[in-house]
């Protein structure tokens, strides 16, 4: 379980986050939504311990995040960033093997895990390709395999953070990545994803948190969060029509007339 209490963050003169409270239980798939600059990525960087805490507290499975050693933390939480440039000609499978770094096992046993993770991310055919030569989407899927290798063998209580990770993916692979993340949350992992695609969030996440100006405007189930009023408020006058609200939410944005 991940418990964040009263998180505030100031960068320079700007107050980026205002006393955020957040709880994520094992098996939860939480989508962080919000307009550009709402504080989603800053919140994620605090939850990943990438940025030191200024105010508030975060605990992961009962222990303060700051008290965990680098290695302990790396075995419990993995982060898939928006993009990972790499200019050296590593083969894709070697990149995936770097995910095993916190576990420090031998080359052969790690290669067995790497193979399974390549298969889960559906990039087995890229295993021997030079990473810098791959397309943006292929790189991202290889990175997904690396993140899977880091969390292998997927124990309940592990934390997976996705930071706008589907930006470079085509629709099929977006669905694939989120389906995989959903499957991981069904294994008991906690998944937190920064998402811009509301429909994708509604489809896969069981909990949504809508951020606006560094505060959580509303959090809860997709049905509770994705209402025209909330979205209008969080996205600065974005007009959206909710088509269905029972089993899943279906949104239809109203056409904007561009009038320069």
């Amino acid at each position: 379980m991940l418990v964040a209490k009263q998180l505030s963050l100031q960068l320079g003169q700007k107050q980026v986050l205002h006393s955020i409270d957040l709880q994520v239980r094992e098996g939860d798939f939480l989508a962080l939504l919000g307009a550009n600059g709402a504080g989603k990525s800053s919140l994620l960087s605090l939850l990943s311990a990438e940025r030191p805490l200024q105010q508030g507290s975060i605990s992961l499975n009962g222990r303060a995040l700051a008290s965990l050693s680098n290695k302990e933390l790396a075995r419990q939480r993995a982060v898939l960033p928006q993009s990972s440039p790499l200019f050296f000609p590593f083969a894709a499978e070697e990149v995936v093997r770097m995910g095993r770094l916190p576990w420090g096992e031998g080359r052969q046993s790690s290669m067995a895990i790497v193979e399974q993770c390549l298969a889960l991310a559906q990039v087995v055919h890229l295993a021997k390709s030079a990473y810098p030569m791959l397309s943006g989407g292929e790189k991202q899927r290889v990175q997904l395999a690396r993140v899977l290798a880091q969390l292998w063998p997927f124990r309940p209580g592990q934390l997976l953070l996705l930071d706008e990770c589907t930006a470079s993916l085509d629709p099929l692979h977006q669905q694939q990545v989120f389906a995989l993340a959903k499957w991981l949350s069904n294994q008991g992992l906690m998944v937190i994803a920064v998402v811009h695609d509301l429909q994708l969030a509604a489809q896969y996440a069981n909990r949504l948190a809508l951020l606006a100006a560094g505060r959580i405007l509303v959090q809860g189930s997709p049905q509770q969060v994705l209402t025209p009023e909330h979205l209008h408020q969080a996205y600065h006058g974005f007009e959206v029509e909710v088509m269905a609200q029972q089993e899943s939410v279906l949104l239809r944005p109203k056409t904007l007339l561009f009038n320069p």
Binding site: E50, N70, P81, S84, P85, G99, L101
Partner: peptide, 9 residues
């Protein structure tokens, strides 16, 4: 990248 390296411990 430094971020990824620190995520890996």
């Amino acid at each position: 990248g430094e971020n990824v390296a620190s995520h890996l411990g």
